[in-house]
Design a binder for these strands. Structure first.
Lengths: 345, 345
DNA sequence: CTGAAAGCGCTTACAG
DNA sequence: CTGAAAGCGCTTACAG
């Protein structure tokens, strides 16, 4: 690839008969040039196909005009989880206007994750990062402070981390699911949790327990799992082998619910006749299964765009307050129905 | 965020009692400094926590040390398609060692996709891009040439684009699926295509037709669809409403197969007793459905890592030849079985 | 409203 | 083997 030399600001300045500074001013549209001159300069720039060099601008401004997003690749979960794609699309939407760019990194483990944050920060690749999937006692907060790397946390947390945050209210979603099942007469409602290393797994479990208690039910069928299809299947086998089978299972995500439903069907149970099942995420595919999956629809796209705009403001030293997005919405489909009549109180 | 000033190469040079050039040499490890001095310099750099500034390096070297990947967001497909996550993870693996970074962009439509390529190129944000999901008569080739932006095509194509390419052999995968079904005695085998705007949809259809003919069967049940769950469901309803129903359906991806299976089940058909079904992709969730999905396992991770290393070489003006990865592998699971005995020839 | 100069933090010839 | 200088392409005070 023998690049013909790209035009520089000097070329534009010369062609327009002005100084380089004038070109910069024209571009920013602020002050320093008359409207007329500005037009001419922009026309020339457009003509030559000139856009300021990102690295030169970054060097001058001490600003990369880039945001970082580091995903920890939990191989089985990542691929199946539509969260990231939507979240990134949402963030992108905000970055695109603003001439910013997203630097994405995928880390295999904690060590390489840490290394990624470190190098993004010390090389000045990004001006800030988006944080998701909080772990309990997440060590990233300390790291970010040490690196003095601005961040916005796109998740709910108990941690007092001092970064601006954006989150959906999971609790409301779980409560809606439980209410829905109770209305159908279910009393033996089980829960399959996500990986408790993640805060949202713990939070959903706590919300589940609280919701059950509110209805005077005993949360004695909570099985710990890990958000994977495999984990969901195993937890389901375990629940179904108990002496008192649940009449409904609330899963912490769609993927486990789908795998769990298959396990139940394989054992000859009818859904929802014998067993009601609910997911969490609102993945598109849930609508197209047999039976279709009752779930809670979260909004990763909105979460991504909101978090990104908070981060952009935060980097610019504007005051940004925490944002709570509307509660995710219960989507009632075919996998839930009346409790079996044989069920005791 | 009151950044304490980051150390620069000058700080390192002073602290080590050498020139800035010496630091650069020490870092590259090539020539110019004695092993001893080199050690000392690196120790000092480590001590101060210095890493070269990406933008300064980029400006000097006229190299961004970044690769671009632009995804066109087809909202319904993207979220459900695990391809991207795996592909990106594979590419990342290669970039990480090498100090490179991936710039990800998500485009809503062709216009914003074009704009993304243009700005990445003209701002010098990236040194090259990875191209996937080729369309028939893909206009990106012309664009890339115009922009003189190095690229590697991670897909098979008939187009004579002049860029290095890496691809898996789809044809083999489709042939394996058809052979498998024929061995089970199926003769009325249908195909639900992906969106024919994409080359791989067309290629899979052609492979299907060829495979059927090889077995002396008539490919008279090919329904055009679009890779989405909805599309797969509709195509399936159409096929099942025909006077001569197929005994097996080959879908161009897993997502459509899953949705198609649900449609068949909803109509009371047993899978595989009444209808055999196959997907394409080998998504993890397919293993956890009821029945589990027979499919073809592709390897997006390998595709991503191979494409990324080709691109890195291509950017460095090394000669890179096209790579054909091993044929994807047939994964036989529960959704395929013997043809129903009532079936005529 | 405009122009010349210095600086951002590297790298790269070019002298010594 | 090492040092001083120029340059990468912008932006930003600072004069005019």
């Amino acid at each position: 690839m023998n690049q013909t030399k790209k035009p520089t600001i000097a070329d534009v300045a010369k062609a327009a008969g002005v100084s380089k500074a004038a070109v910069t001013f024209a571009l920013k549209g602020t002050n320093g040039v008359s409207a007329e001159t500005r037009e001419r300069i922009l026309a020339v720039a457009d003509d030559l196909g000139w856009t300021p060099s990102a690295s030169a601008r970054a060097l001058s401004n001490r600003r990369a005009y880039a945001l970082g997003f580091i995903i920890r690749r939990d191989p089985t979960v990542l691929a199946a989880d539509p969260f990231f794609a939507d979240f990134i699309a949402g963030a992108e939407e905000v970055l695109a206007d603003g001439g910013r760019v997203m630097v994405l990194s995928v880390a295999r483990d904690e060590a390489s994750e840490r290394a990624s944050y470190r190098s993004l920060a010390s090389e000045g690749r990004v001006d800030g990062v988006l944080i998701t999937d909080l772990r309990t006692d997440d060590e990233r907060f300390a790291l970010l402070s040490e690196l003095e790397l601005p961040a916005v946390v796109a998740s709910q947390t108990k941690a007092n981390h001092g970064f601006p945050s954006v989150h959906e209210d999971d609790e409301g979603g779980v409560a809606e699911v439980v209410d829905h099942l109770v209305q159908f007469g279910h009393t033996r409602i089980a829960h399959v949790t996500g990986d408790p290393a993640y805060e949202h797994a713990v939070r959903r479990r706590e919300s589940f327990v609280a919701a059950l208690k509110r209805h005077g039910l005993r949360p004695d069928a909570v099985v710990e799992s890990d958000f994977t299809a495999n984990g969901g299947a195993e937890a389901t086998r375990h629940l179904l082998s108990r002496s008192t089978q649940p009449s409904a299972i609330v899963y912490a995500n769609d993927l486990m619910a789908v795998a769990g439903a298959a396990v139940a069907q394989r054992q000859g149970l009818r859904i929802p006749g014998d067993l009601s099942i609910t997911g969490f995420d609102g993945t598109d595919i849930g609508a197209h299964l047999f039976p279709s999956l009752t779930t809670v629809r979260t909004n990763p796209f909105l979460l991504g765009s909101t978090a990104a705009s908070s981060l952009v403001k935060f980097i610019d030293h504007e005051t940004v307050s925490d944002v709570t997005l509307p509660s995710p919405e219960l989507i009632v489909r075919d996998s839930t129905g009346p409790a079996p009549t044989d069920q005791g109180a």
